[in-house]
Amino acid sequence: MRFLPLASKILHILATIGFLLVSWQIFSILLDTPAFPPPEQAVRSFLKIFRSDLAGHLGVSFYRIMFSLVVATILGVPLGLFLGKSKKADRLSAPFIYLTYPVPKVVFLPIILILLGIGNTSKIVLITLIVFYQILVTTRDAAKNLPKEYILSIRSLRATERELYQHIYFPACLPAILTSLRLGLGTAMAVLFLVETYATREGIGFFIMDSWSSLAYDQMFAGIIAMGLMGFILYLLLDFGEKVLCSWVNP
């Protein structure tokens, strides 16, 4: 009995993949251009070049994404909790955040490139900056809207500040933090592609653009599959983390 939900979930995923492949096939027949090869060709190319080419690029991209997400989380979560908890700090910082949050951070790319060079650092810094803002704002708002009963109930036990974060603010905001990470992951993938399309010879974004400019469309789609898979696996990881860490939300 316990296996049924998992089995049906896997079946659901397989059916969805099947649906995507069929749609892809139909489109490639309808479009009838070498720039849109059928899935079979792309998958074959994916399997052929995975070890020789893709794995390396994928590794670099994975590293950039993970590093950025981890740093953005380590910086954004504590700061967000702090701003949500401290009215004064929130008041002081609110104008700054409201003015800078809506500015698309990608416009800083040239500056970041000039300051940090064209290596990994500048790419990671840009992705981190963007994801950091999302996490910061979501976490802050979650902490701010925490019912004060929770805080009172543990304050009356004379909890220290650290214990307030440990027992109240962090666990209470964790669902919101994971949601913001999921949104952040989507943004991070998009920005990753952008920063990998120039001034680098590594990463899945570079691989896709490089295949495109050499008219190797099968390879290009193999790269797209690889990028999609990477995103999918990261989502699964986040999902799993949420199930384990936030089982209280939907027990």
Partner: peptide
């Protein structure tokens, strides 16, 4: 005074902690 316990209108139980963890919290903090 350190001997006062307060039970709030809405119980003040923490939804993210199990019964066990909610009950032991006070001892943990002490």
């Amino acid at each position: 005074s350190r001997d006062t316990a307060l039970i709030l209108q809405e119980y003040g139980l923490l939804p993210w902690k199990t019964v066990w963890d909610n009950v032991k919290l006070g001892l943990q903090i002490r």
